[in-house]
Design a protein around this nucleic acid. Structure first.
Lengths: 343, 343
DNA sequence: ACAGAGCGCGCAATCGATTGCGCAATCCCC
DNA sequence: GGGGATTGCGCAATCGATTGCGCGCTCTGT
């Protein structure tokens, strides 16, 4: 519990001034080789570690990087968190984890905290409806938006080709012979929800398939919604032969509901999940799913944030990076029982 | 990017001294009601937020809490992280996430960083073989050990009844009629690995069942080991009729291997998983698994850490809290094909 | 041998919040 | 009405690292 030694302690030990100690540890050229060596050795011996608070105060900004996520239990975000943590660790930054539960109030509070901590910058998956002040704070601090994009703030955005993801899913089902395909996704209030649904619609349209709006469910991002949506879809007089999901959590809920309802997958219903994790391979004969290059995306975003906060950064138009998802074809999709001829 | 306003700005605005501003915001009784109100309103108007670095410097300790985990993608740890993040958020602390990958070097580096940041304390799931300096740093900072216990440091420890967990698993299988039961767990170099194996052994012994050491696999904590261990077990001339796993990651790997090998679960092999997550319910007819009260445990541990760092804390003997796991009986366990009579 | 150049190091201010001490004004009571 | 008590606020130091400036010493060239 005793305080770690400071530069003052080292200076006293060696009968030097604090300035000299500071310059030695900073590798300043104005210090003789010998003195530097003595200082470095004494620092090590005494167990000196720099006081980040003092440095932050002096420099006006800390080495803290914020990560603002709706849900850390979500495999998608925890994978991203791991990648981001790795990047931060490499560069000697502290990663502050802020979980919002998609609650704008919590989100704002976390943003305020990060501002209090004079965070160097942050990576944010914006909540569905950020508060006004949240937007202001975002504009006032270097940051990147991750996956979701809140267009009310002009920021750099690192996302996935959401439309393409759904095109892959829908195309796969269409190729298998499905014509009546349901969609369960997140609200169109978020960019990702909008783009995914858009991609789904377009693909079906391009294939000349009419969309039954009763089979299109877009709502909240949680497991419960997925469950309820699937329930509603199964209760339709003319249930679909396939379902596409467009969100990791709701995908889980939807699949859970289908299983609980005794629907045979894939013989009675083909199911395309969203996002990937080791456990998903277990579902029945494995889950056909949309895989996202999460780690790559997260590392790209973090690197960019660091470059941006660096001194040599020229600010230009907001950067926009989109990585392409892929589809993992496994056992939860198959041709429909009776292939229906295209209309 | 412009600096947030400071107390000095507020003081200038109101033609007061910085001291008065500070005392007003700190709700000191030595300030008139009117002045306090003016200060508070000006602070709000200017968008003042306290500079945590300055406060940390003055007080000698920041409001940062460290969370040192081997793997944030593990559902067990991410659930704990969520609970801990919630606690921190409630109390206005920043949670710094440090992922070690069970690498002692990374672990040490993170500990050094937290010391640099003058962290208030930390919650650590110790790596398998912490470095000497890691132990020293642990002793020098308030912390609690979570789940795993490194007995080389006398700390407060919040864990689960590991022996009891395995007793539940083994007992369940024995009651179903199994007599040849394999064990796949983590290395006995960690406390949890030791205690779990111990619990497994004792339960079988108590039931008068001899243990075939060829069916006992204890190794690293990862998915790969689980896979390999299961492979080895299935290759035995006399394979078991049931398997108990004692770790979330290796449980996944083991199950994966069994499936890949075409072993029918539960008819040819009963399988007890470890830890729980929404997706686990999907495996075949659902996975029988050991459920751990993660959230409760994490919140208890965090609360304790806060109490410990508080001023009114009387230090006594290290605290030791053990919560009890439960077993979720689902579809991956059943009676063996031919019940074997007890020896 | 002397002036100027260059090297090595210390002084002191700074960042923002906090706090012990002190000063002035008002108040109370007898 | 006067002395002590109380109230309301400012001064200045402090935490630890960083940095512009300057001082003294050594070295070099002529």
């Amino acid at each position: 519990m005793k305080r770690p030694p400071t530069m003052k302690d080292i200076a006293a030990e060696l009968e030097l001034s604090v300035s000299t100690v500071a310059r030695s540890l900073a590798d300043s050229p104005r210090i003789s080789r010998e003195t530097r060596a003595r200082v470095v050795s004494a620092a090590e011996r005494l167990g000196y570690v720099i006081d980040l608070a003092a440095r932050a105060m002096r420099s006006g900004t800390s080495s803290i990087v914020g990560l603002i996520v709706p849900d850390i239990r979500n495999d998608f975000y925890s994978t991203a968190a791991k990648a981001i943590a790795d990047c931060c660790q490499e560069r000697g930054h502290q990663l502050v984890l802020a979980v919002t539960d998609d609650d704008p109030k919590l989100e704002l509070e976390h943003l305020r905290n990060l501002r209090s901590a004079r965070a160097l910058g942050f990576i944010i998956i914006p909540s569905v409806t950020p508060a006004q002040e949240t937007l202001r704070l975002m504009r006032a601090t270097p940051h990147v938006q991750f996956v979701r994009n809140c267009s009310k703030v002009e920021s750099d955005w690192f996302g996935i080709e959401d439309g393409e993801a759904m095109r892959l899913a829908a195309r796969h089902l269409i190729d298998l012979g499905h014509r009546r395909i349901a969609y369960i996704g997140s609200t169109v209030a978020i960019s990702t929800g909008r783009d995914r649904l858009e991609g789904f619609r377009r693909t079906l349209q391009d294939a000349g398939i009419a969309i039954d709006e009763r089979l299109v469910k877009a709502g909240s991002c949680d497991t419960e919604f997925g469950f309820a949506a699937m329930q509603a879809i199964l209760a339709e007089p003319q249930p679909p032969s396939a379902v596409v999901t467009a969100g990791a959590r709701m995908s889980i809920g939807a699949y859970d509901c289908a299983r609980a309802s005794g629907v045979a997958i894939p013989s009675a219903l083909s199911f395309v999940g969203f996002s990937d994790s080791p456990t998903l391979r277990w579902c029945g004969a494995g889950l056909t799913t949309i895989a996202l290059p999460v780690r790559e995306l997260a590392m790209t975003a973090t690197d960019f944030l660091f470059r941006k906060t660096g001194s040599d950064f020229k600010t230009g138009r907001p950067c926009r990076v989109m990585l392409t998802p892929s589809i993992l074809k496994r056992g939860s999709t198959a041709a429909p029982r009776r292939a229906i001829e295209p209309v």
